[in-house]
Every structure is written in C-alpha cells, then in structure tokens.
Amino acid sequence: MTPVELSRTVLRAVRRAVDEGELSVAVPVRVVVTPPGPGGRGDYATNIALQLARPAGRPPRQVAEILRPHISRTEGVADVEITGPGFLNIHLGGAATAALVRSIQAGAHEGAYGHSDDLRGDVVELRIPYDIRAEVVADALVRIIASQGGRVEVEHAEPVNLRPVPAPEDPAPLGPDAARWALLHPAVHDRPRVTADLLVQRESNPLFRVRYAHTRARALHRNAAALGFTSTPGDVRDADHHLPADAPSEDATSLTTALAEYPHALSHAATHRAPDRLARHLVTVADALLAFQHTVLPRGEQKPSAAHRARLALAEAAGTVLAGGLSLLGIDAPEHL
C-alpha cells in the first residue's frame, strides 16, 4: 500500500464516519499521510484527527477514536494506534507489502512503477542557456516528465526559464554516468561538485551506493536461484511474525516505505522540474536495501522459508525501482560492480 493509497483509505474512513453520523464535518479534499515522526509508531501516521477536531467540536483523541475502527477494517492494515494528542499511527500487514511488490513487478512488464498520466496533455517548454549542466538537466526532465504523461519541448532561447548553477569545471573526465550524477544530484540552485570522489567505490559516494545496491539485488536473485528458490511476494516476517535478531523489522519497514514513496518522489521531480528529488530518493531506496539485504538468504543450515521468498521479492522490487530511476536520469544500472 503506497502513501497515496493510504491517504485515500483515511479519506474514505472520514467519509464513512460522516455518512454514519459519527462526525459532523466537511470531508477534506485530501489527507496527508507520512512516515511517523519522533515518538510515532507503525509505518505511517496522519494528523487528520487534529485537523478535524475544531470543526467537529470534539477533542482530537475522540475524533481519532472514531476514525480508528474505520481505518483498521481496511485490507492491508494490521493495526492503528493513537499517540500524542491524537495522531493516528498505522501499521501495515504483510498483505500490504505483498501488494506493493506485485505492483512493482507488474510495472516491470506493463509500464514502469511510479509512472502515471498526471501530466497527460501538458506541454512543458524549457528554454535553457548553452551550458552543459542545463543540457543534462533538461535531458533528464524530458524522460521524467514523460513518465507522468507530459511532454517537454527544449530550446535555446530567451527568456531562459531553466538556468541551473553551472558546473565549476568540465565534468566529462568523470565519464558519462558519474558526470550526469554530479550535475543532477544537487538541486539546480546549488553548485555541483565535480570531483573524482564520484569514481571511488566507498560508502561516502552516493552514486556508488545506488549502483551497488542495484547489483546486490541482482546478486541476491542469482544466489537464491543457486540455493534452489525464487521470490514470492508475501509477509517478510517469519512464521512467528518476527525477523531474526540480526534483522530488525525496522529495516524491512524502511525499505517498504522508501519503495512506496517512489511514485510520489517521481511525481514531485516532474512537477517541480527537479531531477535531484529523484536522485536523492534513489539514495534513500539504496540505503534501505543495503541495510535489509543481509536478511534475504537463509543462513547456515536454514531452509528457504516463505519469509525468505518474500524478502527476496522485496529486494528484487527495490532493484527494479533503482534500475528504473537510474534509467530516467540517463545513468546505467550495472549487473556487477
């Protein structure tokens, strides 16, 4: 279940509460659902009860108590907790993770995950200066905006409406992939750093982490095949609903959250003409996968379980998202590093 889908779920809960006479408020147009902040719990949280408290004439926690059962009955929601003055903290079940993975898998065959028709019919005119960074940013935006159904027309003309801060030196010696990352990863108003650090294979290099995470996803697929099992979307927890001690459940949650938020990051990159938002989110996905990867394969004398197959599916989904995002940026996603 993605944040967008969960937002719709909460909105439907509000509408049901109003229809059943439990609340007397105007149903909002949209509901914001985000990862929980400090002190929060679960996979996602919303402050909708605090927003509705005043128009409903009720304390926020009372509004939260009214909405809680309506959200809890939704398929894919395992539990809903109320924290603080009335925040609704939502725990997703294994079915939600499986549905997310299936959505990503389907996207690999039917039209990439995160792509949409939100900008269908929109024509974005980009007028850029004769500058290498402007050219690279515009080239990435052509693909990113197309992923949301829009079309981009690029020309060198005045008045310029896309003028990224130029690179301090020619990035070409870095090679095509590192050069593009150097120009796309910073926000367009920030000066890019064109340094050989982007060629070094170490954790401090975000490009390396993204590409390495993709290779790890592919390696996990090959290693699982060598062990005689393949992936199946499902609950990543073991039969007793706990990951092993060396694989805290937060790692699986972090990866699931990062994958679920990818469409939102891609949409923002398109609407705000900001490929850096996509690049930074790929780093988030990569870091989450690298923290999670150690839980995927059986260890020692362990036999592959349903949880292992589900974790493999989640890791493969992350690899698919990383490859798709890098492709939109015009950067290669290698099988090996």
Rank of each mutant, 00 (worst) to 15 (best):
P186W: 13
V160W: 08
A260W: 03
L266K: 00
R12G: 08
D190K: 14
R311Q: 08
Y262M: 07
N161E: 06
H336D: 13
L141Y: 03
L255D: 11
P38D: 11
Y262S: 06
G324V: 06
G150I: 00
A45V: 12
A108Y: 09
G40M: 03
D122K: 14
V32I: 12
Q51C: 01
H189D: 15
H272K: 11
G39I: 00
G111I: 03
T9E: 05
V296T: 10
N47Q: 14
A138C: 01
T34D: 14
E335Q: 09
V200P: 00
I82R: 07
R16V: 12
V63W: 01
V137K: 02
N223G: 05
A45R: 12
V29I: 02
E155T: 14
A182E: 10
H189F: 15
H294Y: 03
V154F: 11
A179G: 03
A179E: 09
H115M: 04
F208W: 15
L198E: 06
L243E: 12
L255Y: 11
L50C: 04
S305A: 14
R58P: 03
P275D: 13
A140V: 13
P168G: 06
H294E: 14
N205T: 09
A269C: 12
G324Y: 02
A225G: 12
R218Q: 12
P69M: 04
L312E: 12
R15T: 10
Q148L: 04
G21K: 12
E301I: 10
L328A: 00
L278A: 03
A179D: 05
R277Y: 03
A313F: 09
V33H: 04
R163L: 10
T230K: 13
V31A: 08
A239M: 01
I82Q: 02
T74Y: 03
R193F: 07
R41M: 04
P55G: 08
E155S: 15
P248V: 15
L184T: 06
A291Y: 10
A95R: 15
L6A: 10
G107W: 02
V154G: 00
G111C: 02
I145W: 06
S204M: 01
V33S: 04
V101R: 09
P206D: 09
D332L: 09
L184R: 09
